[in-house]
Design a protein around this nucleic acid. Structure first.
Lengths: 239, 239
DNA sequence: CGTAGTTTTGAGAGGCGTCAAGGAGCGTGG
DNA sequence: CCACGCTCCTTGACGCCTCTCAAAACTACG
């Protein structure tokens, strides 16, 4: 794997309000620092881990952008999520001791490596951390359920609107604009995530542009009318 | 809530190989017994918990059958899962301290109540239990991802075939037939779970019957050709 | 035995997939 | 610096799968 290790400290990380250290006190943070002692760089287009790999660690995205995707024997595949800084990767590996999906960097990225046995050990000592780990997993479950809602009951326009709103909302929580964003993924990857073909994604973008809701220039998207997007999401279009 | 409490012991439960106690030794099992001291009965059609309810406990299904579903403000709703005996309900509540979905009994049911703070406390003492809790949550995440694959990239026939295979497989693991089953849910609920309309569910059942793959009499289903179902699932029909 | 809920089946419509062609952006090499 | 090729994106035309609307049959239950 084309990755390299470097020293790092959670206590001085500007993502500590978003990442694993949420709510830990100084002593706990200090102990966590010793567990999360390495980072890995992942080059654009390469895998942090792949389905079938032995599970050893969780990873916190420090910079860059990832997609996770599951693949079936017959070559079908589905993007199950996009992860940005402060978000956790690898939870899928716990149950089988092997990863169940691929995690691929969509741009050069850096992750903090958190050996899972050490996370578990520390969780036994610190209630705060234990509960936080549980929350992270629960959050992923709730998120997945909302994606199931999207895939199961929304039409193309609603899906794309919901997708854009979710992306800017997460970016905004990280200090970025709430109306501008750069898509790190292709139309095809968006389509896979949203259960539609890339042509439909493209057409739907065009439709939003025609209606004056957004501006699009390749990967750059400007949201001109957030309320219109919200309205599209929250108004079942007959179906 | 029309439920009542009764005494119970994991150590004598015939689901202990499927449920939370998996892998615990005698001493640990004994301690767990004291935590899981009550059961609740849930009548058909009523909710074990609803979205917004305060989260206090996880629930292990002891008998009966549940569905979980998320509902949006605009009245859309999506069945996110069906739970049978030995399976755990309530993981969605951890992250917000309130439940994010409804859990509704599809037939008269009985669940074991596991106060979550006590589960966490015991997890800090017993590595085995801690790891098992993590596995349960990870399994749910992996399951959700496979549902996303289903919703995002399969057509009606593939979805229904995958659904039937999954159901009998789980029933078989619980000692039931691997070729016969009684559906506990309506066509509409199946449709909601699979992202299709009830009419399409019904038509797809009829198609399978015509092809001699299954027999259907209302809620009763006999699988006459498991391989044919597997073939349908694993063969992308162009899309 | 009537009524409500569930399921089946048909006919028609439309949203999205499929196939195809062309254009735009970007890195590479001459 | 420009040509070239590659990948990604856009747009059009057409067809099909699934939704929608509707009606009837069946089951369950009071």
């Amino acid at each position: 794997m084309d990755v390299q290790s470097i020293k790092v400290a959670c206590s001085s990380c500007n993502l500590r309000e978003l990442c694993l250290p949420v709510g830990l006190n100084e002593h706990e943070l200090d102990r966590l620092d010793r567990v999360i002692s390495t980072r890995k760089r992942v080059k654009r287009g390469t895998a942090l881990f792949s389905a079938g790999d032995k599970f050893t660690s969780l990873y916190a995205v420090r910079s860059g952008f990832f997609k996770t995707c599951v693949t079936t024997a017959d070559g079908r595949d589905q993007v199950t999520g996009f992860q940005m800084m402060g978000e956790i990767l690898g939870l899928d590996g716990i149950v089988q001791d092997h990863h169940a999906c691929d995690a691929i960097a969509l741009e050069d990225a850096e992750v903090c490596v958190m050996p899972f046995d050490q996370v578990e050990q520390l969780s036994r000592e610190f209630t705060t951390l234990q509960h936080h780990v549980h929350k992270i997993m629960s959050r992923e479950i709730v998120r997945d359920h909302s994606v199931m809602l999207l895939l199961g009951s929304m039409r193309a326009e609603e899906r794309l609107a919901a997708f854009l709103l979710n992306l800017v909302q997460r970016l905004h929580a990280r200090g970025f604009s709430q109306s501008e964003l750069i898509l790190r993924m292709t139309r095809e990857e968006i389509g896979s995530y949203l259960g539609m073909k890339l042509e439909t994604v493209s057409r739907t973008f065009s439709k939003f542009v025609e209606e004056g809701i957004i501006e699009v220039k390749q990967r750059y998207v400007l949201i001109k009318n957030t309320d219109a997007l919200r309205h599209i999401v929250s108004t079942p279009q007959c179906r």
